[in-house]
Design a protein around this nucleic acid. Structure first.
Lengths: 146, 146
DNA sequence: CAAGTAAATAAAAATCATTTCTATTTAAGC
DNA sequence: GCTTAAATAGAAATGATTTTTATTTACTTG
């Protein structure tokens, strides 16, 4: 068995464990939605994911994709990306990162910014309440659209 | 004439100038939508603004509010706020700031973080394209919801 | 390991947010 | 004041997401 299969196994096992801990049943659809999102590098919308998954699961309905994404996001297994757009976009990545969004083509790119991650929030933010996440959203024109 | 009126005059004049520069007609509805948003401190949605404005302009239609907000945002006279929510939220403030969003009550609070504003983006972001804006979005529970 | 049960799914319909269409009104140049 | 293109109101349409209902399925319990 090669390394890539081990990695996949690990990923599935992690997902299975997380589902059980959250009291979620491990259904075929749920696993496939997660797998497809984890494989994607483009922060797909529910509709986009549905189109991709239909190739392998023709009976999969769009509402199941929506429901599954909402469930997984609620249990923090995936993230809904902050955006000004009307269609919600998702990602499975768990590592701390930020987003570059092209105003023209709407493509979303991840980037890392450790100095920000390490920087404590100003007092005003801590007085406001209990902080759960802190992310930078950058808008602009990607090299391709300029 | 008191100071507050002078401030208001200034604000309107600025808005009028900006509209002319952008080739936008200065309609009663447009001015009132802007005024109401500029007065608001809660980053209202189109629907919320419409409800407030109806008190003074009963004939104002919701689609005009949507159209006006889109027009003003397009010309950078107002901002659409980055959020995970389905209803878009707006603000008229132009000064550089960031957002604290309560995951529970969805209230949005502005905060300042000068050290971030001054910090240059990592190389990766500059290679990506031409940056237009950079904002921090913080999620958490506000003091009231904890 | 076969049944029972509550959770999850598919499909359709409903809802919510936003946009478009069309006839009418109005701001701004002449 | 008159003209005209832009903006508005109201209604209808669209797009994204959620809900409803009947059916299926994962997981528990005997």
């Amino acid at each position: 068995m090669e390394r890539s299969n081990h990695l996949l196994d690990d990923q599935f096992q992690m997902f299975e464990t997380a589902c059980r801990r959250a009291g979620l049943r491990l259904t075929h659809q749920r696993l496939e939605v997660y797998r497809e999102l984890a494989r994607a590098e483009d922060h797909p919308s529910a509709e986009t994911l549905h189109q991709r998954l239909r190739r392998s699961i023709p009976t999969l309905s769009l509402d199941t994709v929506y429901r599954t994404l909402a469930t997984l996001a609620c249990h923090r297994l995936i993230n809904k990306v902050d955006t000004v757009e009307s269609q919600a976009r998702f990602e499975a990545t768990q590592h701390q990162h930020h987003h570059l969004i092209c105003s023209k083509c709407k493509q979303i790119t991840d980037f890392e910014w450790h100095s920000i991650d390490a920087l404590p929030l100003p007092a005003q933010a801590n007085e406001w309440g209990q902080v759960e996440s802190k992310n930078v959203v950058v808008y602009g024109l990607c090299a391709h659209c300029q």
